[in-house]
Simulated scan of single mutants.
Amino acid sequence: MKKRRSLKRFLVLLILLLLVAGGAWTGIWYIVSGRLITHVLAWEQARQAEGWTIRHDPPRRTGWPMAAGVALANVSLSGGSAYVPGGMRWAAGSITLALDIRHPNALSLAVTGRQVLTIDSGQPLAFQAKRFTGQAALLPGDRVGLMQFAAEDLLAAVPGQDPHQGQVRPASIARLAAALRFHAAADAKAPALAVAAEFHDIRLPPSHMAALGNPSLLAFDLAFSGPVPVQAAAASAAKNGAAWVRAGGSMTLNRFHLGDGPLTLDAQGLFGLDSSLRPEGQITVQARGLGPTLDRLAARHVMTVPEARAMIAVLGILTPASGTGVLAAPVTLHDGDVNLGPIPLLRLRP
């Protein structure tokens, strides 16, 4: 009898302890999620002071028990003409931001539903992913460190070339991985913004590029060095670009890789902007499989056979006589002219 009473008391005490622990954990979760909502709203106010317009449904707590999160539905963000000529607009079905209570310095996000991106007055690009997630390191002073993003089975509706026809063409990316780091206090030699991304198994809509096949990999690693102009949000993109050039800003292409059918293209280089804000500098390019690429383009009627043979003859001048078939040549950008070695390619408008 005494054993039963002791067991009963133990179970009652255990239940009480669990209730107390659960209540305390729920209180912590409620406090942390409330602070996250406060930080999100403060971030939005700071961006709105810079000229951005942000709209969404009222924040809703989510993520209990292990994550303190906030869910935002019907999100739209527009503005950015200080950084992107003409500005941009982005909309998403919903975003969930969450902090793991055990690791409160790591912010995670998940985007669900249809997303739409519009640059300047261009046609909107609609896309949706099976999974679209991200992580960001939270630094002291509500600053954000390294941000990483990943997506799977991303399907996009690419606008047609004729905006009056309203036609869209499907394109897809099997996997996407990207990283971004922003450092506002960088000097002329340090990277203020570093962006790297990889796109795996790309399927393109019918086009000249798709005539080569579907790229298995597109990757780049790009760093923008130089101090961010003071009060940059109050100026136009052109003024900010000019101020960045005067301060010694430059762009370093650490890596570019394209694997597309028979063509493999690698590049790296250093360039900046001239007084007309056109790219200026030099990029070293290595290309393999150019001959088979041109033959395939001719076979698929992207160009004529004589045009392909003429280009092969020109490339033979630039390709070393080692017989490797590898083109290694500099691409120079100066005064609006783009040259591949000694061969003019195109001229950029000011």
Rank of each mutant, 00 (worst) to 15 (best):
Lys8Ile: 15
Phe10Gln: 03
Leu11Cys: 08
Ala21Thr: 11
Gly22Met: 10
Ala24Trp: 15
Thr26Glu: 01
Gly27His: 00
Trp29Glu: 07
Ser33Gln: 08
Val40Ser: 02
Glu44Ser: 06
Gln45Ala: 10
Ile54Thr: 04
Asp57Thr: 08
Thr62Pro: 05
Ala67Glu: 15
Gly79Ile: 00
Gly80Ile: 10
Tyr83Asp: 13
Val84Arg: 02
Val84Ser: 02
Arg89Val: 07
Ala92Thr: 14
Leu99Glu: 13
Leu99Tyr: 13
Arg102Met: 10
Ala106Cys: 05
Val111His: 03
Ile119Glu: 08
Ser121Trp: 12
Ala126Ser: 14
Phe132Met: 09
Ala137Glu: 15
Leu139Ala: 08
Asp142Ala: 07
Asp142Gly: 00
Leu146Ala: 13
Met147Asp: 08
Ala150Ile: 03
Pro159Tyr: 03
Gly160Ser: 04
Pro163Tyr: 09
Gln165Pro: 04
Arg169Gln: 14
Pro170Ser: 05
Ala171Ile: 13
Arg175Leu: 13
Ala177Tyr: 07
Arg181Cys: 04
Ala184Glu: 11
Ala186Asp: 06
Ala188Asp: 08
Pro191His: 01
Glu198Ser: 14
Arg203Ile: 10
Arg203Phe: 06
Leu204Tyr: 05
Asn214Cys: 02
Ala219Lys: 15
Phe220Gln: 12
Leu222Asp: 09
Val230Asp: 15
Ala233Tyr: 03
Trp244Glu: 01
Arg246Glu: 15
Gly249Ile: 09
Leu253Ser: 07
Gly261Thr: 07
Gly261Leu: 03
Gly269Cys: 03
Gly269Glu: 02
Asp274Lys: 06
Ser275Val: 13
Ser275Met: 09
Leu294Arg: 01
Ala298Cys: 07
His301Pro: 04
Ala308His: 03
Met311Arg: 11
Leu315Asp: 08
Asp337Glu: 14
Ile343Tyr: 12
Pro344Cys: 04
Pro344Asn: 04
Leu345Ala: 03
Arg347His: 12
